[in-house]
Computed example of a mutant assay.
Amino acid sequence: MTTLSTAKTRNALRTSARLSGEALLVLLMTAVALWILGKMWSVVWPLTVALLLTTLTWPPVRFLRRHGWRPALAASTVMVVFLLGLAGIVVGIAVPVASQSPKLADGVVDGLQQLRDWAAGPPLNIGDDQVTKALDAAVERIQNSVGDIVTYTVSGVSSVVNGVVTAVLALFLMFFFLKDGPRFLPWLRRQLPGRLATDLPAVAARSWDTLGAFVRGQAFVGLLDAIFIGLGLWIVGVPLVLPLAVLTFVTAFIPIVGALFAGFVAVLIALVSNGLTDALIVLGIIVLVQQLEGNVFQPILQSRGLGLHAAVVLLAVTLGGSLAGIVGSLLAVPVAAVLAAIWSYLRDQLT
C-alpha cells in the first residue's frame, strides 16, 4: 500500500509539473507574441482599422455584387460613399465637437467640484484630507482624460504624419479586402496541407462573422443610444447636446465602461448647467435607454452569435485599457469575441 501510494504521489507530481511547464510555455509564447505585435504595430494597426471598417462596409458591397456589379466597381462605389459620409461627419459634427470640447471639459470639472462641495456639507460632512486629495486627483484625471479623448478625436494619433500614413494604408487595405475578400479563403485552402486546409479557413470564417456581428451591432446600438439620449438632453434643455451625443456613440464601442463614462459626463453637465432636478431627469433618461439596450437590443445581438458574458467583457476592457490605453479598450472586446469563436470551433472539433 505504501508503494502504491508513493507511485500515485509521484505520478501526481509528475502530472502537475508537466501541466505547470505547459502553462509557463503558453505564458511565454503569449508574451513573445505580444512583444512581436508591439514591434509590428505600425503594420498591425492599419490592418486592424481596415478590417473593422471592412466589416461595416461589406454588406452594401455584397449587395451590389449579388446584383451583378463587378467586384472592383462595387468596392470603389462603396468606398467613395463611405469617404463622402466620413467627410460630412467631420465637417458637420467633429468640428463643432472639437470647438466645444474645452467647455465640455470645464463642465465635467465644475460638476465634480459641486459634488465635492455637496459631500463636504450635511448630511455627509466629509472633510477628510485623504478624500479631498482623492477627489482632486479625480478632477485632474477626468480633465486629462477628456483632453486625451479630444486629442484622439482630432488627430487620431500622436503624430500627424503617422496618422495620415495609417489612414491611407488602412483605406487601401480596406479596398482590397472589399474587392478580393471572398477569394481569400479558397486561396488559403490551396496553400495549406492536410487538416489545416479545412480547420484554418473554418476558423477564419467564424472569426470574420463574429467580428462583423460585433462591430455592426455596436455601431447600431451606439447610434440608437446617441439618438435617444441626445433627444432627451435636447428636450430637457441641456447644453452641448451634439458633443454629448457624439461621445455616447463613440464610447458605445467600449462596452459597459463607455456607457458609464458617457452617462456620467452627461449628468455632470446637466447638474452644472440646469441644476439638480434636470440632472436627475437626465439620469433617468440614461438609465431608461440603457435598460432598453440591455434588455432589448443586446439580447438580439447576443442571439446572433457574439456570446460573451458581461463579466468577460468587463475584464477584457479593463485588461485592454491597462495594456494599451484607449486603443486597447476599443480592441479588447473584438479580440475577446474572436478568441471565443476560435475556442468554440476547437471545442466542436474535440467533442
Rank of each mutant, 00 (worst) to 15 (best):
L247F: 14
P255F: 10
P243V: 06
I285L: 09
L240V: 05
V257S: 09
Q302Y: 01
D225T: 07
T277A: 14
A266Q: 15
F261R: 08
V265W: 05
G237W: 01
V296I: 04
G321F: 05
G325A: 10
V265E: 10
G275D: 03
V267N: 12
L223M: 12
V241Y: 04
Q290Y: 05
A259W: 02
L308C: 00
A226G: 03
G321A: 11
G275K: 03
L268D: 10
V313Y: 01
S303F: 02
N295L: 05
A324W: 13
I269C: 04
V265N: 06
P299M: 02
G237D: 01
L276G: 09
N295A: 09
A310W: 06
N274M: 14
Q291D: 09
L244N: 13
H309T: 01
L306W: 00
L301I: 06
F228A: 03
G237P: 06
G294H: 05
E293A: 08
V296L: 11
L319Q: 08
G305Y: 00
G294D: 04
I235H: 00
L323Y: 05
L301P: 00
I256K: 08
L242Y: 08
G294A: 02
V287S: 11
L301T: 02
V238R: 03
A259H: 06
V313K: 08
A266K: 10
A266P: 07
A279T: 12
S273P: 11
G230D: 01
L224C: 01
L247K: 14
L223I: 10
V236Q: 03
I235Y: 00
T251P: 04
A310N: 09
G325D: 08
V241G: 07
I285V: 14
V265S: 03
V312G: 03
A279P: 11
G284H: 12
G284T: 14
G305R: 01
I286M: 06
G275N: 07
A252R: 03
L244T: 09
F249K: 08
L308P: 01
L288Q: 03
I229T: 01
Q302D: 05
V246C: 03
V282C: 09
F264G: 15
P299F: 02
A310T: 12
H309F: 07
F261L: 13
V257A: 15
L315Q: 04
G232M: 01
A324D: 09
S273A: 14
L240P: 15
G237M: 03
G263N: 11
A316H: 02
P255C: 05
G284N: 12
I229A: 01
Q291R: 10
L240Y: 14
